[in-house]
Amino acid sequence: MDTRLLGTTGHEVTEIGMGTWNVGSDWGDVSPAEGRAAIRAALDAGVTFLDTADVYGGGQSEELIADVVAEHEAFPIIATKAGRGLERHTADGYTRESLERFIDGSRDRLGVDALDLLQLHCPPTDVYYRPEVFEALESLVEAGKIDAYGASVARVEEGLKAIEYPGLETVQIIFNPFRQRPAELFLEEAARRNVGVIVRVPLASGLLADALDSESTFPENDHRNYNREGDAFDVGETFAGVPFERGLEAVDALRPAVPDDWTMAQFTLRWILDHDAVSTVIPGSTNPDHVRQNVDASSLSPLNPTQRQLVDDVYEDYIRDEVHHRW
């Protein structure tokens, strides 16, 4: 699999990484055995970048990664996140003391002296206007507890503000054929500043995997059930913010662009990778076959102009009015 530089971290990471939100929580019941099998499949396929967070299953995702990495004798870059574990998720909670506490917990669960990459976990917008938060992260680098830091952002504006801090090395952001706004300015600015870009929610919670239809149902503990209106967290994390039925219509319109021997997920991942500013994409799956298929997207040819135009047409006709102004 091809690799790309992750900003100025010095790490080359595979174009397709793995997100592990769904092996921890919020995607229905996933057993530890299923989670381990999915992570193992990613490492077997050559993936060298894993993304997690301290709140995924109350630390379960980090623990599963540590178990599989140890038995696999692999050395992936592991990125985790901190901040969502605050009792009250406010900007005032993002202190050096709280961040250090979260970091120490992740270090313990992952079994490492220093975290490869620590990302602020979609903090309140005000955090990006508090230099002391980023000074705290710098001090934790100096203390040897983290090697690098970045931010996972909810909105393009937050990403643009985050990359103004010279020590920040990565931004994680939602970007896919249903969330195209980052391509207008953010990707260009990130590339200009040599900031690594990690793309999350690439498959729009399964919509862009063409895995859902109007009859699909979801367990009570699946965010695609309980967060469709943003009742638990930002609605942009669920189906990329696209109303479910509208998303199904858009997928139908997009299907003619997908080659017969590609999956819709591969087509989507290839569209993302065709943007050079992207460092790595982190689809999540608990199905080892799907993990391997996602990895194969790295070896596919770039989309042709006709395919790219159809993606843009579908976005304009079905999606833009729903999401573009919001994130």
Rank of each mutant, 00 (worst) to 15 (best):
V23N: 04
S98A: 15
D44E: 14
V201M: 05
Q119A: 07
V47H: 02
H223V: 04
M18V: 10
T125W: 15
I16K: 05
V295K: 08
A209I: 14
S299E: 12
L269T: 04
D234S: 13
I272C: 02
H325V: 03
I198H: 01
D313M: 07
E188A: 13
N287E: 12
P202K: 13
A162N: 06
R107E: 02
R224P: 00
E100F: 04
A45S: 15
T14P: 10
Q119C: 07
T3M: 12
L50E: 01
G93D: 07
V291F: 08
A277P: 00
P166C: 15
T286V: 15
R84S: 06
V141M: 15
T280G: 11
T280M: 11
W271R: 02
G24T: 06
P76F: 03
Y129M: 09
E164R: 13
E138D: 15
R200C: 08
P219K: 06
P288E: 07
A209T: 05
A190D: 00
E229Y: 07
D261Q: 07
L303S: 07
F244Y: 15
A74Y: 04
T263Q: 08
D113Y: 09
S98F: 15
P166S: 15
G284W: 01
F186D: 01
T80M: 09
I146P: 01
T80H: 03
T238P: 03
A250R: 02
V23H: 06
F178R: 05
P243S: 10
T20Q: 07
I103H: 01
F178Y: 15
P123W: 12
R155T: 10
R36D: 03
Q309H: 05
K161R: 15
E87N: 06
V242G: 03
E245V: 15
W262E: 01
S152L: 06
D113S: 14
A232E: 05
V68T: 03
E63G: 00
L207F: 06
A74N: 02
D44T: 11
N287L: 13
G57A: 03
E142P: 00
V311H: 04
I198F: 10
G93R: 10
T9Q: 09
